[in-house]
Amino acid sequence: MSLLEVKGLRRDYGALRAVDDVSFSLEAGSILGFIGPNGAGKSTTLRILATLDVPTSGEVLLDGHSLVDSPDRARPLIGYMPDRYGTYDDVTVFEFLDFFARAYGLKGAARRQRVESVMAFTGLTPLADRLTTALSKGMRQRVALGRTLLHDPSLLLLDEPADGLDPRARIELRELLRALADQGKAVIISSHILTELAEICDTCAIIEQGRLLATGKVADLLQQQEVGAAVTPELTVRLAVGDAGNAVWERAERVLLEQPRVKRVAREGEALRVRLELDAGAGPAQVDAAAAVLLAALVAAGLPVCAFSARERNLEDAFMTVTKGRVA
Rank of each mutant, 00 (worst) to 15 (best):
D159I: 06
R112K: 14
M119C: 10
T122F: 01
D182M: 07
G123D: 10
E116H: 15
I200E: 00
L127H: 15
E208C: 06
I188H: 01
L158F: 09
A179E: 12
I189V: 14
D159K: 07
C204L: 15
A198D: 15
A181Q: 00
R112G: 14
E234Y: 05
D163F: 07
L145S: 06
D163T: 11
H151G: 08
T236G: 06
A134Q: 08
L177P: 00
L145D: 06
T203W: 04
G242S: 06
V227D: 05
L176M: 10
L235D: 01
H151N: 10
G164I: 12
E208P: 09
V187I: 15
S154F: 03
I200Q: 08
E226Q: 13
A134I: 01
G164V: 12
V187R: 05
H151W: 09
Q113D: 14
E175V: 07
P233D: 03
L197V: 15
T133M: 10
A240E: 15
R174G: 10
L213F: 03
E175D: 13
L124N: 03
I193T: 09
L180W: 06
R168S: 13
L127N: 10
R211Q: 11
L155C: 08
V118N: 02
I206F: 11
V227H: 04
I189E: 08
A120N: 15
V231T: 14
S117R: 11
T232H: 07
E196T: 06
H151D: 06
R170M: 12
P153L: 07
P126Q: 13
I207F: 05
V187N: 03
R238G: 11
L157N: 11
C201I: 08
R211V: 09
L177N: 00
R211K: 13
L165V: 09
D129Q: 13
A230H: 14
H151A: 06
L124Y: 04
R168H: 12
V143A: 05
L194T: 05
V227W: 02
P126F: 08
A205D: 14
H192T: 01
A205F: 00
T132E: 07
Q141G: 00
L158A: 11
S191T: 06
A214S: 08
A198F: 12
L131K: 08
T232K: 14
Q209V: 10
L239S: 06
I171L: 13
S191W: 00
Q223E: 14
T133E: 13
I188F: 01
T132P: 04
T195Q: 13
Q141I: 00
M139Q: 12
L180G: 01
G146S: 14
T148W: 04
L127F: 14
L150Y: 04
